[in-house]
Write a protein that binds this DNA or RNA. Structure first.
Length: 1023
RNA sequence: GCCGGUGUGGCGAAAUGGCAGACGCACAGGACUUAAAAUCCUGGGACCGUAAAAAGUCGUGUGGGUUCAAAUCCCACCACCGGCACCA
């Protein structure tokens, strides 16, 4: 970096203004009911000095949120400030525009690295965490962001996680009511089910509870004991204990949520993950699947982000169908999205973990007579299947998810020896187990329709099972499929190789049905064939129509029903870690000796983790907390839960804590929550003005966080979890908006200079501290935004920093007297370091700056800049806003006289982007300060530039009298004519036709048509 | 495989139906300077052409279409990036 002389003394300016902002608390955001100190620029701007305004008296709120960082040991990387700069620019812009802006920062500080360091060194993770936070905070502060640090949160602070535990208790103490479609306190259910209910009036009107009560009374024959009720209620809580197989990561010594497992490996560290049945805490996020999906409509997120969430939730509509089992009274329920292909179901597959298999192993079901066409290989031995089934299940259980997905491209499975009966034609169909059917999705069982499902087709080919076509493909598809067969095998399918067969409708169809195994599964839309019995026919019906008809028929016969399934699974919420929030849960034994769990009272919060000297799991695989036996065992004989919550817990609600960060009596006060989340009257205009306004208002939606910026890495995990918690809190009446984040923007990744992702191993990591010391914070901020659109992936280029740095140098020289710069530089070399800050006063205003009345051209330049910057900021187009500032400066550099008013307005525009230099120049361009007060630390602070009203552009000043109008002939530019802006169409046309150049191109041709777009262009179409 | 996004000079990019390449980087030439740095000025898509210009032709991943007019809208394809991936 061959930068010699500094463009301007950012090294003095930046610390000076950062200290000033801190002293003045310039960016403190005020809650309703807080007294505004006299002299604060926000109070002065809004005429609220010394007042204690209510929500209605405060200006409208604007909540601009960053995804708070995990304070890693490596410190800030250049990706962090990208989002932070964008939100800071917006925050400063909105403040200038008159909003009460909430712009906070905090630390997502629980996490694995601090714990692993603790295991290695014995140092308490708190120490590591505190040191890392200090580094992050120093780095972030050196960038001059306008955060309200009085609202800083730290998820590992007991004052914070007290409320994380409190919210967990709310989850624990709630159930999801399907009739009301919301969470309800579980106390209501407990009361409804108790022997002598007390709150009858409250639950009597509730369908669900009445049904539950009736059901339980019947089962218990009227005799309810507390144990039975407790056990039942435990299964309904939003936070519950499950024994299901979980993702166990031996390397990390903990279980992981589905979301944390990628390609069978842990998201953190990339270690293998295996399935293992364990007792774990789960959160019932699946109850919210439909709302999490539907409410995406009401929020302003990018299309791709919504799509990712939709994908993850994975809603699919279909039907459940019950199949009778031959020689048994039991039935097997399958889930299918294609009930219209039921006539083509030729076998059935259960997941290896399906519960019926245990029964069959204990009590084999045999058929008196093998169905016709049963392959000999199955008939051979009545016992053989059971051996095969046992060993197959064992194999499947041993396989990690990685092996199941990556290595088993080839289908595998075994015949169980059992047959089911296809309810539409009463044919016995063999039942297999295979690991391509997942226990955790749908019913863990499928009807296989090989002709119309690719996976079933593959399986059927491998095991030579019948493939029965029941949907007629278009002729064109048959021809294409036959060609693909030829390309694959070198053999042709007779009669399909060329053009669509003429006699398709008759003989061809039959031939296709006979040779379908040579084709491939046809999964597209077609019409039904060979799908009828004495009661129902789907023949000639389209897929959608057939689905409706067969589902209705199944329902009528009591054989099935319409169902919706989700890929989303309940959230595995416990970890075997030390550095996380302990569960406020104890385990007790009932009279019969059975363990049950119970919540601690709210008064017991925060529940602190015990002090340990070893952070490893115990030798028998218990979580580290189990080492603290005197912490675990309580005097009354109960035992504490030793799992801790996952890192996601703290980040699920931090944006709410910011609203009222110091509140010791509640996680947030009602008043602060309503004001900042925009549920109060004062914010209503915001709803009306937004793109989603009408829709949102109809749904009763208030905006929530106005803008949330962060990386895509949180597209499913954090954002789904936080939305879920928010909805629970909404249902229970603790927050007033159904969605937390109204507008969300993902910043694009910043790549290394080589266009690769930045990484230590590549050696292409850019350290923000280096850039800061070389070019200063303002240049760094500008560059981060000037690189390209916020949401795009873009490579870093340090040369580009020099460009924006030069721009700031130009700004500096526009304002500052050159002679005084020389004096300043000389004084710097002789002055001692401590006094260097005062030298800034040596710098004088450029003599070209005066109170002269600005010329029309100068005003036009200014107002064009105001317009562009304002519009671009509203559209988050920071790069083009900066280029507009550059255009202004390039122009203003040529002005012999520089009107003070024009330059002041420019500084207000510059301030959000480069706040330090803007403040420094502002303090100079204001004119001389009153002498004598300068040395006084306690003087009323300077009014901050940050609260100067944002300038409005005057459209009248931008009007051009003479326009340059391009003239095209046949769409090609041939001339540019100058003409009065208000020229009529006829005048424009005449002027265009009069052009010599245009005439040249029209010579010898006839005019077909002349298009005249006033103020834009003329296009002459000729032969 | 499915879903989403992107594709424009040497590079980051701008223009979302109306003069393609604003702004910036890098580069080249010039001014200032003993010299360098810094600063200021000038130049620039490609091709063809010319002493230099002018004029001209082509040009926004590829191929087609709509339109007086397309980077922009429509259809098909290709490449890259991101997500999901046996979810029945």
């Amino acid at each position: 970096m061959a930068i010699g002389r500094k463009q301007y003394p950012f090294d003095l300016i930046e610390p000076k203004w950062q200290a000033h902002w801190e002293r003045q608390q310039t960016f403190r955001a005020w809650n309703p009911g807080e007294a505004l100190p006299a002299g604060h620029p926000f109070a002065a701007r809004h005429k609220l000095e010394g007042k204690t305004p209510t929500a209605a008296e405060l200006p409208p709120k604007h909540y601009i949120l960053d995804m708070f960082p995990y304070p890693s040991g490596a410190g800030l990387h250049v990706g962090h400030p990208e989002g932070y700069t964008a939100t800071d620019i917006l925050s400063r812009y909105r403040r200038a525009a008159g909003f009460n802006v909430l712009h906070p920062m905090g630390w997502d500080a629980f996490g694995l690295p601090a714990e692993q360091y603790a295991i290695k060194t014995g140092q308490h993770p708190r120490k590591t965490t505190e040191a890392n936070i200090a580094t992050f905070k120093r780095q972030i502060k050196s960038l001059g962001f306008s955060y309200d640090w009085s609202r800083e949160v730290d998820t590992t602070d007991p004052k914070y996680f007290k409320w994380t535990q409190w919210i967990f208790l709310k989850l624990y103490n709630s159930y999801y009511d399907p009739s009301l479609n919301k969470a309800i306190p579980i106390a209501l259910m407990e009361d409804a089910l108790s022997q002598s209910p007390k709150r009858e009036s409250e639950w009597k009107s509730n369908h669900y509870l009445c049904e539950l009560r009736a059901g339980i009374m019947e089962v218990a024959k009227g005799k309810l004991d507390t144990g039975v009720i407790r056990e039942f209620v435990q299964t309904k809580r939003l936070a519950y204990v499950s024994e299901a197989p979980v993702n166990w990561c031996p390397e990390l010594g903990t279980v992981l949520a589905n979301e944390e497992v990628i390609d069978g490996k842990s998201e953190v560290g990339g270690f293998p993950v295996v399935r293992k049945p364990m007792r774990q805490w789960m959160l019932r996020i699946t109850a919210y699947a439909e709302r999490l999906l539907n409410d995406l409509e009401s929020i302003d997120w990018s299309h791709s982000l919504k799509e990712m969430q939709r994908n993850w939730i994975g809603r699919s509509e279909g039907a459940e169908v019950d199949f009778a089992i031959a020689n048994s009274k039991e039935t097997i329920r399958v889930f299918t999205t294609r009930p219209d292909t039921l006539f083509g179901a030729t076998y059935m597959v259960l997941s290896p973990e399906h519960p019926l298999i245990n029964q069959w192993l204990a009590e084999p079901l045999t058929l008196n007579e093998w169905p016709k066409d049963t392959p000999d290989q199955w008939k051979g031995s009545a016992e053989a299947p059971y051996k095969a089934v046992t060993s197959y299940r064992l194999m499947a259980a041993m396989k990690s998810d990685l092996e199941r997905t990556e290595l088993s491209k080839e289908k595998s499975g075994v015949f169980t020896g059992v047959f089911a009966i296809n309810p539409v034609n009463n044919e016995p169909i063999p039942i297999f187990i295979a690991d391509y059917v997942l226990a955790s999705y749908g019913t863990g069982a499928i009807m296989a329709v090989p002709a119309h499902d690719e996976r079933d087709f593959e399986f059927a080919k491998k095991f030579d099972l019948p493939i029965r076509v029941v949907i007629e493909p278009p002729a064109q598809w048959l021809v294409e499929a036959a060609k693909r067969f030829l390309a694959r095998t070198g053999k042709s399918v007779e009669g399909y190789d060329n053009s669509p067969p003429e006699d398709f409708k008759d003989g061809m169809l039959a031939r296709y049905a006979a040779t379908c195994h040579k084709f491939e599964a046809f999964t597209g839309d077609g019409v039904g064939m060979r799908s009828g019995n004495s009661e129902i026919s789907l023949n000639r019906l389209g897929v959608a129509e057939a689905k409706l008809k067969i589902t209705a028929w199944l329902e009528e016969k009591g054989l099935g029903r319409k169902t919706i399934n989700y890929k989303l699974r309940d959230w595995l919420f416990s970890r075997q870690r030390y550095w996380g929030e302990p569960f406020p849960i104890v385990w007790k034994k009932d009279a019969a000796g059975n363990l049950y769990h119970e919540a601690l009272p709210e008064s017991a919060l925060p529940l602190l983790p015990p002090v340990l000297d070893d952070y490893k799991p115990t030798s028998d695989g218990q979580p580290p907390l189990a080492r603290a036996q005197d912490w675990v065992n309580l005097p009354d004989g109960s035992v504490r839960e030793t799992n801790t919550m996952p890192q996601w817990a703290g980040s699920c609600w931090y944006y709410l804590r910011y609203l009222d960060a110091q509140n010791a009596g509640a996680f947030v006060s009602k008043e602060a929550e309503e004001y900042w989340m925009g549920a109060d009257e004062n914010s209503k205009f915001k709803i009306q003005n937004s793109k989603f306004g009408k829709e949102a208002a109809k749904l009763g939606h208030a905006p929530g966080v106005d803008l949330y910026v962060g990386g895509t890495e949180h597209a499913v995990l954090h954002l789904l979890y936080a939305r879920f918690w928010h909805k629970v809190l909404f249902d229970l009446g603790y927050v007033s908006t159904p969605e937390p984040f109204f507008k969300l923007v993902n910043q694009g990744l910043i790549l290394g200079e080589d266009g690769q992702k930045m990484s230590k191993s590549r050696g292409n990591v850019v350290n923000p501290d280096d850039i800061l010391s070389e070019y200063g914070a303002d240049a760094f901020r500008l560059y981060e935004m000037f690189m390209g659109p916020l949401e795009m992936v873009k490579p870093w280029n340090t040369k580009g920093v020099e460009g924006v740095y030069r721009f700031l140098g130009k700004v500096w020289r526009l304002f500052v007297d050159e002679q005084s710069v020389t004096d300043f530089e000389q004084a710097q070399t002789t002055s001692d370091a401590a006094k260097r800050g005062e030298l800034l006063d040596l710098l004088k205003l450029n003599p070209a700056i005066s109170d002269a009345v600005p010329s029309p051209a100068q005003l036009k330049t200014l107002h064009a800049c105001i317009k562009k910057v304002t519009e671009d900021l509203d559209g988050l187009r920071f790069n083009t806003a900066i280029s507009a500032l550059m255009v202004f400066i390039n122009e203003a550099m040529t002005w012999p006289t520089r009107p003070r008013t024009v330059l002041r307005d420019f500084l207000i525009l510059l301030q959000p982007f480069a706040p330090h230099i803007a403040e420094e120049l502002w303090s100079k361009v204001q004119g001389p300060k009153s002498k004598g007060a300068e040395a006084d630390e306690n003087e009323t602070p300077l009014q901050s530039l940050g609260y100067q009203p944002w300038p409005k552009y005057d459209a009248a000043l931008l009007v051009e009298n003479i326009l340059e109008i391009p003239v095209q002939v046949n769409g090609k530019l041939r001339d540019v004519i100058k003409i009065a802006a208000d020229a009529s169409q006829a005048e424009l046309e005449a002027a265009a036709l009069a052009s010599e150049k245009v005439k040249l191109f029209m010579e010898g041709k006839t005019i077909k048509k002349i298009i005249v777009v006033p103020r834009k262009l003329v296009n002459i179409a000729v032969d």
